[in-house]
Design a protein around this nucleic acid. Structure first.
Lengths: 158, 158
DNA sequence: CTTGACTCTGTAGTTGGATATAGAGTTTAT
DNA sequence: ATAAACTCTATATCCAACTACAGAGTCAAG
């Protein structure tokens, strides 16, 4: 009873079962998101099965829009015995605000982009003008600032 | 008439007038987005005033969601005498689609996130659970894939 | 004529979240 | 016994769109 007997998993199995790449797992470990697991006498990582829950947590939190850094904070708080409720809540609140702003901007942008496209259709080719875009835009300067949108994900997996 | 007399601008002036950083201007030049300007005998860049229009174009296209790479294509097409209308249109069309998908996902996500937050409020602190997030999520797996959202811009200017 | 502002080139660093590769050692199946 | 599959560490690379810095030369004002 003292030593709970959990199946020990090698990194490849963890990777397969969690859908997270081996390199990413080691990366998470380096980042502090995963505890350093035990090792076999020859140095192989031996994970307790419950690492899968931790990974699931990380993925869920990521899906919720938390950065790995924020997730790390949550984990640290938890390890320190504190429930990170307030932190979680605060971060989620901020995420929601950002989200609203972003959605708003995107919708506005969508409208403008559509208008732009329609404008081109009406104008046709005017010499020296490239679809109304090169020489001047019909769009007002609402969207000039920032580099809104474009997550243009670097994510290759899934 | 043959030589149109344009005011010559040094890079700092162009930067000031366009709001684009000096380094970025040199970067654009290297990337092919700006033609290589003339130089003074001592090697300083001397821009014709109309570079400002080109820069404005780049910024507008960026604001429309084009990547620098795409903008480069447009400029190349234009230089080759072709009106890039079709390209522009095609890219914008794709942008619109992406945008719609992204907006949709964000809205869905927003709803789920709000629900999550409300769930926590009802639950309160349950020992061992961290706001319903650490051990399990009330959110279905709609959002697990991809790394949606998070432009989390690297842009510092403006 | 000196100070300070400006410019030059070239290289490296930033962000976030990984992925890839090299070169070596280990375990497993046949 | 040997080959295939796996794992180890450490370092480098990717994406976009810049930004920063080092070290040197240039220009304008006082």
């Amino acid at each position: 009873m003292a030593l709970s007997e959990q199946k020990q998993l090698k990194i490849g199995e963890v990777s397969r079962q969690s859908g997270v790449g081996i390199e990413a797992l080691r990366f998470y470990e380096k980042s502090g998101l995963l505890e350093r697991p035990g090792r076999t006498y020859s140095g192989y990582r031996q994970y307790d099965e419950d690492v899968l829950e931790r990974i699931a947590f990380i993925k869920r939190a990521q899906a919720l829009g938390f950065t790995l850094d924020e997730i790390l904070q949550l984990i640290r708080h938890k390890r320190a015995g504190k429930s990170p409720c307030d932190e979680v809540r605060e971060i989620v609140r901020i995420r929601l605000q950002e989200l609203d702003e972003r959605i708003e901007r995107m919708v506005k942008y969508r409208i403008e982009l559509t208008a732009e496209l329609e404008g081109w259709d009406k104008i046709g080719h005017v010499d020296g003008h490239v679809c109304g875009l090169i020489e001047e835009s019909h769009i007002e300067n609402g969207l000039s600032g920032e580099n809104h949108l474009r997550p243009r994900s670097s994510g290759r997996k899934l």
